[in-house]
Simulated scan of single mutants.
Amino acid sequence: MRVNRRHILVIASIVALYALITWLLFSQSLGGWLQTVSAAFIYTLPCSVGALVCFLGYKLDRPSGFWAYAAPALTMFALVIASLLFNMEAIICAVVAAPILMIMAFIGGVIMSLILKRTESGRLSITFLVLLPYAVSPIEQMWQAPHETRVMQNAVTIKASPAVIWNQIYQVPAIRKEELPAQWIYLIGFPRPIAATIDKQGIGGRRHATFERDVSFFEVVTVWEPQHRLSFTIKADPEFIPHTAFDRHIIVGGRFYDVLDGTYEIEPRSDGTCILHLSSTHRLSTRFNRYAGWWSEWVMNQIQGSILEVIRQRCEHIQS
């Protein structure tokens, strides 16, 4: 069944206008009641977009599986791409949000198609669904977002002695770009690690970890066991992190996400190698911690894994 291109253009324009107005209002955090990092924006808004696409498709074109099942998700995907083209959102946010946005848009289309099968006009239903994000967000803001901490763990086997490894972890000389393994996180905008310095050896020593785009983390050593274990607290002050370094929604040390501490542990093995463990504790404070947690683990596994790979290469070069 062919779809009229003119109808597609009209529907796309109406839906894009609705999405743009909603994004503008939510991104301004009007009175604190409308928030982009919210269940209303992540779940309800795409459901409303999908319902609107289905409704307009049924009314302006004809009832079909395309408007009920395919068009809502495709429209949501197009809106995500448009947000990137017009610099409305960062790549990392688009990558993280796109799957759930498209799923919810699909659900919205299915819901609207079921409603239209049972009612003649569906006008009251679509009005309710279009306004639903504006009703859900203020209610949602009445409750504090749950806080959740997670520990990320990575490890690498290194053909070097504990002494060699220790000298490469309590401080990290400048990392050349070619030393870092290729990782998706760096391709989509995460700053690459540069170096870590320390003002003095021992407990209370202050480490300064730097990343690209003038990103800095200030760390205080809490455990100092040479050739065995190094632990430190991590402080990221959002006021000293350039706004261009991270997307405003996921800035480290901000309202929704933070890194609290880190630990290196060297585990010698009988074959002369060592396993270097790197773990860190993170805080998530969103209304979709389960989904956000999966992505934060994926991102941190890539970051920690790339740092461990740099240390492995350097230690094995020194040992050889």
Rank of each mutant, 00 (worst) to 15 (best):
R123G: 14
I311P: 03
F55I: 14
S113R: 09
V215P: 00
S113T: 09
R5C: 15
G262V: 11
I198T: 04
R287N: 09
A245E: 00
L60N: 06
K159N: 12
D258N: 14
I303R: 01
A195T: 13
F41N: 14
I165S: 01
Y43C: 14
F41L: 12
F26L: 03
F86S: 00
V49F: 10
I175V: 14
F106W: 12
P46R: 09
A145C: 08
D261R: 07
P181E: 03
A236T: 12
S13T: 15
I165W: 04
Y291R: 09
H147Q: 08
M88P: 08
K59Q: 06
W224V: 05
K117R: 13
T157E: 10
S280T: 14
G65V: 13
I126G: 06
R6N: 10
E239P: 09
M300V: 13
A71K: 08
V136I: 08
R206I: 15
Y134V: 03
T197D: 07
I198V: 11
T210Y: 03
F190P: 01
G189E: 03
L276K: 05
R118K: 10
I91N: 05
I14G: 01
R192K: 08
I250H: 00
I158Q: 06
Q141T: 15
A236V: 15
C47P: 03
G65W: 09
H208T: 15
D199N: 02
K59D: 11
A71M: 11
V136C: 02
V156T: 08
L114R: 12
S38P: 01
W166D: 01
I303F: 03
F26I: 01
D271C: 05
T222F: 03
Y134E: 10
W33P: 02
I251M: 00
V53S: 03
F218W: 12
H7N: 14
Q183E: 14
D199K: 04
W143R: 08
T157A: 11
T197L: 05
I188F: 00
L74N: 08
R207G: 07
S13V: 15
I250S: 00
P99A: 13
L284A: 13
A160P: 00
F86Q: 04
I169K: 01
I241L: 09
